[in-house]
């Protein structure tokens, strides 16, 4: 089978593209596939390939020539499409630039998208307060369910106070 793009070289990359519910099969040679930035073509299979596989198997569409994909990290220069190939970040800035798009990947790898562990002392103050408020909100709900209205009222007051103090801190 020849490459759909150049018609010269044999097709080695086969992709099913889904658009508006219509499936199209695309066959590309390795060169054209590389140019289109479709797949990682590394020959030795590694955890990175696996991750890259997860990243590009998002239900949306295998090849999505979405301009957002080429978001580039200003600190290290890594693009989102390159990240999808390698499965490695270039620096901590990449996380901020790629943002919420990373959550499906984290969900697949860890089954979770939110950190619940240690907090650095430096970053700690605010996050610790937020977590405490979150915990008290859950206790409040429980108290209401159990019809412990006195406890609920005092919890509500404490949550209010903490939220107020928190907002004051930010300013």
């Amino acid at each position: 089978m020849q490459c759909d793009e150049c018609g010269k070289k044999p097709a080695t990359v086969h992709i099913t593209k889904v658009e508006n519910g219509k499936k199209t099969d695309i066959h590309l040679c390795d060169q054209c596939a590389m140019q289109k930035n479709v797949l990682s073509l590394s020959t030795n299979f590694s955890i990175n390939d696996l991750l890259a596989g997860i990243l590009s198997s998002g239900a949306a569409s295998p090849i999505k020539l979405d301009p957002i994909q080429d978001t580039k990290c200003a600190v290290c220069g890594l693009t989102y499409s390159r990240f999808k190939e390698t499965g490695r970040f270039g620096c901590s800035g990449c996380y901020m630039v790629f943002g919420e798009r990373l959550n499906p990947l984290f969900k697949r790898v860890h089954g979770n998208t939110a950190h619940t562990g240690k907090i650095p002392n430096k970053a700690g103050g605010r996050i610790k307060v937020m977590r405490e408020i979150e915990k008290m909100k859950q206790e409040l709900e429980q108290a209401i369910k159990n019809e412990e209205y006195e406890k609920a009222a005092s919890l509500r007051d404490r949550i209010r106070e903490m939220c107020k103090a928190e907002k004051g801190d930010v300013k």
């Binding site: 955890i47 991750l51 499965g87 490695r88 970040f89 620096c91 901590s92 996380y95 901020m96 990373l102 990947l105 984290f106 790898v109 860890h110 979770n112 998208t113 939110a114 950190h115 562990g117 240690k118 907090i119 650095p120 430096k122 970053a123 996050i127 937020m130």
Partner: peptide
């Protein structure tokens, strides 16, 4: 440290992020 409120400690490989 590279740390984010949502995702915890940020690492080179996504398999290590969080703790």
């Amino acid at each position: 440290y590279a740390y984010d409120e949502r995702w915890g400690y940020l690492t080179c490989c996504p398999t290590n992020v969080g703790t």
